[in-house]
């Protein structure tokens, strides 16, 4: 009796589908019934984008034609999938895509972990990374739309094995500028700026207000990618000011305060 009643309540949770997903490595449940693929480095998606990439979404990295730093982000996203042992499909118009795959970063490991890792086979990946070149813009949009539909379908039917693409990114590299170096601490180490242009609203109507939308990209010892918040969070009238709350989202030693 009691179990029958509990099944009819509107608060009962569909555990069958949740259980099926929970065993997939690198997958976790987010708000509003979304399923996230959190990255190995907690920097970008967990702290900045609020949980990871929702499965079935599309992330767009808009490159700066003069700087190759979009590849840095692409490598990081791809390696996150590999770390979670999820299949990775990489499509590229370049003549030698294998050369690019050879440059994927590996997670930062301690010495003991490293030896362990070397004994294991090369893992498989999760995401779809596509370098799109299309003759007609409408054809391009159509193919992206079909890709999205396929992703959504796989989520429902193939139990979310494919990665989500999530957001629109807009990345810009700025040339060295003496004035900028005065304004920004650690300017010498910065290789570019990342601007989060749009964040998906999945299963919700409430817009995601990020704590900051512009970040500096730093490479530490040419090994780890560090993102630091550059601008302040929008001031919330109801909860006071957001000043003095600036912390580094990457966990690195210091944030970059603006000197004015």
């Amino acid at each position: 009796m009691a179990t029958a009643r509990s099944k009819t309540t509107s608060f009962s949770r569909n555990l069958t589908s949740a259980g099926a997903v929970s065993h997939i490595p690198g997958i976790k449940h987010g708000p509003n019934g979304t399923i996230f693929s959190p990255p190995e480095s907690q920097t970008l998606t967990v702290k900045i984008l609020g949980g990871g990439f929702p499965l079935g979404s599309l992330v767009m990295i808009m490159e700066d034609a003069e700087a190759p730093h979009h590849l840095l982000l692409l490598r990081t996203f791809m390696s996150q999938g590999l770390v979670h042992e999820q299949p990775l499909l990489y499509a590229s118009p370049s003549r030698d895509p294998r050369a690019f795959l050879g440059t994927l970063p590996s997670p930062v490991l301690s010495k003991e972990e490293k030896t362990l890792k070397n004994e294991q086979e090369q893992t498989q990946g999760e995401s779809i990374a596509v370098n799109l070149i299309c003759g007609s813009p409408w054809r391009g949009i159509c193919s992206v739309q079909s890709l999205l539909n396929a992703l959504a379908l796989l989520i429902l039917q193939a139990l979310l094995l494919f990665v989500i693409h999530v957001l629109d990114f807009w990345k810009r590299f700025q040339d060295e500028d003496k004035e900028m170096s005065k304004l920004l601490t650690g300017y010498q180490d910065m290789v570019g700026l990342l601007h989060v242009h749009k964040v998906a609203q999945i299963n919700t109507q409430v817009p995601v207000i990020l704590e900051a939308s512009t970040f500096s990209i730093k490479l530490q010892r040419r090994r780890s990618l560090v993102l630091e918040r550059l601008n302040q969070a929008p001031v919330d009238g109801s909860s006071g000011t957001s000043y003095n709350t600036s912390t580094s989202c990457s966990g690195s030693s210091k944030a970059s305060p603006l000197d004015f």
């Binding site: 817009p207 207000i209 939308s213 969070a233 929008p234 001031v235 919330d236 009238g237 109801s238 909860s239």
Partner: peptide, 8 residues
């Protein structure tokens, strides 16, 4: 005036 947390 840009993005705000209490006025969307």
């Amino acid at each position: 005036t840009g993005l705000a947390a209490d006025v969307h």
